[in-house]
């Protein structure tokens, strides 16, 4: 049986509120499609081998934890960038999304270096951006409404105007609460502020990663072959609630 391995980066440091819901989601959906999927934890000091894993996931963490992770990533930085350019599927949320840019200047004036893959930066804003969020993204040439929750003190701005935000904010704040952009997409990498269980409530995004993982093993699947009855109910319930509220 074909089996998949998803690397969970620094689960002991970068695992805020419910981030593991994303891994549960990918694992279960692959299982329902008839494949085996295992999550492999990679902590500080662990060796990585890209040939052994099919996807990388990293969640959010506190500022202190984020800088510990940054230190450990130094020796893996080049290899990870090479893989990202080759289309390796990657999902980075919140603090780990900020790490992809050049730096994060916290509200307390503490500057944390980033991996500098992309020319964007983050800085502490006047207030934390908290609440339900709806983002319109392009998925398979169709628009799809991504629903989630954001809670971040960092405001992210793109210097490089050729960078592609992941989507357009319909309700909520997104990258900085001003330019209606949310996250970043590059090849098969997504960086986003939508923390917690992003994938269970947005099965099209989960299936995007699943299709990429499969394609890299030479398997093709039709999208939407799983029944997403409850997913759709949950999406409608939140959409109805959020779209009524003034932004």
């Amino acid at each position: 049986m074909t089996s998949f391995i998803i690397a969970h980066l620094y689960p002991n440091l970068m695992n805020l509120y419910g981030d593991r819901g994303n891994l549960i989601c990918l694992q279960k959906r692959l299982e329902w499609l008839g494949y085996d999927c295992r999550v492999k934890s990679l902590d500080i000091g662990d060796e990585w081998n890209f040939a052994d894993v099919d996807m990388i996931f990293m969640g959010g963490g506190s500022d202190r934890e984020q800088s510990l992770v940054y230190d450990d990533l130094q020796c893996k930085k080049e290899e990870l960038w090479r893989e990202i350019k080759n289309g390796f599927p990657v999902l980075f949320i919140c603090g780990s999304y900020q790490l992809l840019g050049s730096y994060y200047l916290t509200g307390q004036g503490f500057k944390m270096e980033g991996l500098n893959y992309f020319d964007f930066f983050s800085e502490g804003g006047p207030k934390r951006l908290i609440g339900n969020i709806v983002v319109e993204v392009k998925n398979n040439n169709e628009t799809y409404q991504v629903i989630g929750f954001e809670n971040h003190g960092g405001y992210t701005y793109f210097n490089d105007t050729t960078l592609r935000p992941w989507g357009k904010v319909i309700k909520g704040h997104g990258n900085n609460g001003k330019d209606h952009t949310e996250g970043i997409i590059f090849n098969n990498l997504i960086g986003t502020y939508l923390h917690g269980p992003l994938l269970p409530k947005n099965p099209a995004v989960a299936d995007f990663f699943i299709r990429v993982m499969m394609a890299r093993k030479g398997i093709n699947i039709d999208s939407g072959c799983l029944t997403d009855k409850i997913e759709n109910y949950a999406r409608q319930q939140v959409l109805a609630k959020v779209m009524k509220i003034k932004s």
Binding site: T227, I230, E231, Y233, A234, V238, K241
Partner: peptide, 25 residues
């Protein structure tokens, strides 16, 4: 409840057959 969909999803992804989860708002 207001987020019956979210809790139902959690139950589904815990492995409970989705047709056997009854949902009401």
């Amino acid at each position: 409840g207001q987020r019956s969909g979210d809790i139902a999803l959690r139950v589904k992804y815990a492995g409970w057959p989705q047709d056997e989860i009854s949902i009401a708002g």
